[in-house]
Design a protein around this nucleic acid. Structure first.
Lengths: 155, 155
DNA sequence: GGCGTCACGATATAGTATCACGCGACGTGA
DNA sequence: TCACGTCGCGTGATACTATATCGTGACGCC
């Protein structure tokens, strides 16, 4: 439930980031991104589709999946594998811009469903080291930590 | 492509582990576990179903999902979220038995699909520390590292 | 103006997972 | 021994997630 103003800013930054990369954040893509940013918790593709249909009666699964693919490709959102759902990338603008593949981890609350992204270097380093020890060349890692968030834990 | 003998041993160990926990590794569950252990790479539920049907023409999705749920619950297999597929737990008998939820990570080769389980303490510790720093109580973590395995990298 | 690319509409289908109902096998205690 | 409860599983339907394929209009580029 981020304030609307902040979301607008995020959208504009995202649009600028796309332009820099020679890509276009079309109205449809922008709308899908907005729907994702508007949600506290990760959103499923079909939930997005339903909301999209309010504005675009012709929307179908490929409509939303194509937008999601674009947003994923440009690092504007991430997929949470455990939930088969999508969430906005919140680690942009912290010095690395919208990287395609920046190391990140998720903290998923079992109680309230809130999911926050963190970017912990120690975790990323430990993963890289473990992979190397196994003779493995790591390209990308999914790290999804499930548990109880601070809010739910103290309540 | 583990040797048949070893698989047989694994199955018997699994059966013993279940008995210790007051659970039964029924023929169906044993067969599903066997099919999973027989595969090099993670196996999808419907691939299992197809193979199961050879023996049990009546097998349907719930047949295999129920067996998978049991095996997951008892720590005999893991689910690889990125692949929506299942793989045998290979970290049993290394001092902790078939824990319900032992820390583990997967190395998934993009080229050949081979997936190996590791149990790296440094990774687990880094994750626990990162969660704690965020005021989060971690219960369980999915760590799936995608890249190129040693075999494919040198070939 | 012809051409390629891109974004998107539209239909169909594939792949993953769960619900709901019922029934027979088994153990347990009255 | 029989009524009862639980468990494992069969069976059919359905929900949820994702992709394939074809068409079409907009745009930029020589």
């Amino acid at each position: 439930m981020t304030a609307t103003i902040s979301r607008e800013q995020q959208l504009n930054e995202a649009e600028a980031a796309c332009l820099r990369r020679g890509a276009k954040l079309t109205p449809l893509r922008r709308q899908v991104l907005d729907l994702i940013l508007a949600s506290d918790s990760p959103v499923g593709a079909y939930a997005l589709l339903d909301r999209l249909k309010a504005d675009r009666p012709g929307a179908a699964p490929p409509t939303v999946y194509r937008a999601l693919d674009f947003l994923l490709e440009h690092g504007l959102i991430h997929k949470v594998e455990r939930l088969n759902a999508f969430i906005g990338c919140t680690e942009s603008g912290h010095g690395h811009g919208h990287d395609h593949d920046h190391p990140h981890q998720f903290l998923i609350c079992r109680r309230c469903g809130a999911t926050v992204e963190i970017a912990d270097h120690a975790v990323a380093d430990a993963i890289a080291a473990a992979a190397t020890r196994a003779g493995f060349t790591a390209v990308e890692a999914t790290v999804e930590i499930e548990g109880i968030c601070a809010r739910c834990g103290t309540a």
